[in-house]
Amino acid sequence: MELLIRNMNEKYAQEIICWQYEEPYDFYNNELSEESLREFLDNPYFAIMNEQEELIGFYCTGSAAQVPIGHDFNAYSEEYIDIGIGMKPTLTGKGFGTKFFSFIIKNIQQEYATPLRLTVAQFNKRAIFLYEKLGFVKELEFSTPTEFLTMLKNCKSDPF
């Protein structure tokens, strides 16, 4: 399956915001509102499409990929490119994550030479397993009260 990156637009953002994940991943569910729409349109979010131009996921970079309260724990004090991802709920847990996230990492690393950082909810063992498989290492834990974990990837530790 070929993957493509498209600039985020209102149509893609609305579709993503309406995605509904099953428990325990319902933590990632959103509600369509002007505020949630602005989040996707006013920040560096990108749509990931398959070769049929169907929306299958997204990624974001910078502060949009950070959990705001993490700053209180100095989770974002070092210079890294923060990345966040999301995959269409009907595609999660089906073994597609490695290809999906590898594609995103490769594209980000072509643009930036800085190491990468992501923040993940600690209950999301499936995602943590994927991130470790792709060379990320656990760095810092903090609670909001949801427990989060930051993970780092040095550009030179690329498993591709």
Rank of each mutant, 00 (worst) to 15 (best):
K94A: 10
C60D: 04
L149F: 03
T114N: 11
P159I: 08
L32N: 05
F46V: 00
N107Y: 05
E79D: 14
I5R: 05
Q109E: 15
L91F: 11
L55P: 02
V120P: 01
N74Q: 15
F148H: 12
K94P: 02
L37V: 08
K88R: 15
G135P: 04
K138R: 14
T114V: 14
I69F: 10
E132H: 10
I17E: 08
C155L: 04
N74C: 11
S63D: 11
L41D: 09
P24C: 04
A64M: 06
I81T: 10
V137Q: 09
N7W: 00
Y59D: 01
M151V: 06
I56V: 15
E54A: 07
N107S: 12
K94F: 05
N7Q: 12
S63A: 12
I81H: 07
I56H: 03
N124L: 08
F142Y: 13
C60S: 13
F100C: 05
K153I: 01
A113T: 13
Q109K: 14
L149D: 00
A13P: 04
S36Y: 00
E139F: 04
C155H: 06
R126D: 05
T92I: 15
P145T: 08
P115N: 14
T114K: 10
V137H: 15
P115D: 15
F142H: 02
F40V: 09
K88S: 12
I128R: 11
F100H: 03
P68G: 01
D82C: 08
N30P: 00
T61S: 10
G97N: 04
F101M: 10
L32V: 03
Y45N: 06
D42Y: 08
F129S: 12
C60L: 02
Q20T: 10
S36K: 09
T146A: 11
R38Q: 15
Y112C: 01
W19F: 05
L116S: 09
F27Y: 15
I69H: 06
I56K: 02
D42S: 14
E147F: 05
F101E: 01
M151Q: 03
S102W: 06
E141I: 11
K156I: 09
F40E: 03
N7L: 13
L152V: 13
K88Y: 06
K11C: 02
N107R: 14
Q66G: 00
I104C: 04
Q109W: 05
G93I: 01
F136H: 03
D72H: 13
I85G: 00
E78K: 13
L4R: 13
S157A: 10
E53T: 02
E79A: 11
Y28W: 09
F160S: 12
K106Y: 15
N74G: 04
F100Y: 12
E147M: 08
E31S: 11
F58Y: 15
Y21E: 01
L91Q: 04
Y112E: 13
T61Q: 05
I48P: 08
L91T: 09
P145F: 04
A47I: 03
F40H: 08
I128S: 07
E139M: 07
F136E: 00
G57A: 01
R126P: 01
